[in-house]
Computed example of a mutant assay.
Amino acid sequence: MKTVYASGSGPAVVLMPEMPGISPDVLRLARWVRDAGLTVYIPSLFGIDGAYPTVEGGKEVVRRACVSAEFRAFAGGGSSPVTAWLRGLARQAHAECGGPGVGAIGLCFTGNFALTMALEPAVIAPVVNHPSLPLDDPAALEISGEDARAVRERIARDGLKVLAYRFNDDRWCTGQRFAAYQALLGDAFDGRVLPASSANTNPPPFFRDVVGSPHSVVTAHLVDEDGHPTLKARNEILAFLIDRLSPSGYSEYPDD
């Protein structure tokens, strides 16, 4: 049984944590989603909820996740089994919150889960942030062939759009990976690349010492300053969610 935190009102967004857990930076993003008029659901998938990870503690969380039966961290593994449970969470969230559908935000280790969740018809606004799986193949995607075909069918049938972000020299989410998404999804894939020079230069220790490159666009490497590229990315994500999930919708999220 997994813990799921929920807050807010309005249509639902499932926000999945980045490795190695629901950090204060992930919770900050959740509050922004909530304050945009949406209900945010955060499932606890790994790590210590609410804590900044230490270097050694974060490494141990990664090690456990990589051998867990719930995840497919390496090439050839296909879609992670946990995504079936996440699709169920999306169905439940839609039933509880109503609205046109559900948003899904994946981050890092869970980045591609937002795409696989789109196999659930309720998910209509997937956001794939700096997807890092599979860890051993920078040009591959963490999705089975069957699921990839089903996603393409969903795009053709429903006009699904996928928003994605990465930094330009991210060693965990490379240009090769975004090219693979483009090849799979075609014009439905809106992959946006930020300059590495715009990343927060003083992230928490795990991101500084283990991740080792600009990576987490709207969490650990975000700079919360008006007009900053990472804050603009946050605004674009919120606008994408609002536009698709709110019955009236609007296309811009106001700057702070």
Rank of each mutant, 00 (worst) to 15 (best):
M1D: 08
M1P: 08
T3V: 10
Y5C: 00
Y5H: 10
Y5L: 10
Y5I: 02
A6H: 09
A6T: 07
G10T: 01
P11N: 14
P11A: 07
A12R: 10
V13T: 06
V14A: 08
V14E: 00
V14P: 00
M19P: 00
I22Q: 02
P24R: 11
V26N: 06
V26A: 06
V26F: 13
L27R: 14
L27V: 10
R28F: 12
L29V: 14
L29F: 13
R31V: 13
R31K: 14
V33M: 11
G37D: 06
G37T: 05
L38Q: 06
P43G: 13
P43L: 08
S44E: 04
I48V: 09
I48C: 11
D49H: 15
D49K: 09
A51F: 15
Y52G: 02
E56H: 11
E56F: 15
G57E: 05
V67C: 12
S68Q: 05
A69G: 02
E70L: 15
A73Y: 05
A73K: 05
G76E: 10
G77Y: 11
G78Q: 06
V82R: 09
T83F: 11
T83M: 11
R87P: 08
R87T: 09
G88E: 15
L89C: 03
R91Y: 04
Q92A: 13
Q92S: 04
A95L: 12
E96W: 03
P100L: 14
V102E: 04
G103H: 12
A104D: 00
I105D: 00
F113L: 02
F113W: 08
F113G: 00
M117D: 07
M117Q: 07
L119E: 08
L119M: 07
A122Y: 03
V123L: 05
V123D: 03
I124E: 03
I124G: 00
A125K: 07
P131L: 06
P131N: 07
S132E: 05
L133P: 00
P134H: 13
P134T: 14
P134E: 14
L135V: 10
L135N: 07
D137W: 13
A139V: 04
E142P: 00
I143G: 08
S144C: 11
S144Q: 07
E146Q: 12
R149L: 15
V151T: 04
E153Q: 12
R154H: 06
R154C: 06
A156C: 03
D158W: 14
D158P: 08
L163M: 15
Y165A: 01
R171L: 09
W172V: 04
G175V: 01
Q176R: 03
R177C: 02
F178S: 02
A179K: 06
Q182D: 01
L184A: 05
L184D: 00
G191E: 00
R192W: 03
A199F: 08
A199Q: 08
N200G: 09
N200I: 11
P204L: 12
P204M: 09
P205Y: 13
P205M: 06
P205L: 04
F206E: 00
R208F: 07
V210E: 06
S213G: 05
P214D: 03
S216M: 10
V217L: 02
T219I: 04
A220Y: 06
H221Y: 05
V223Q: 01
D224L: 12
K232E: 10
I237L: 02
I237N: 09
I242G: 09
I242L: 12
I242Y: 10
S246I: 15
G249L: 06
S251N: 15
Y253I: 01
D255P: 10
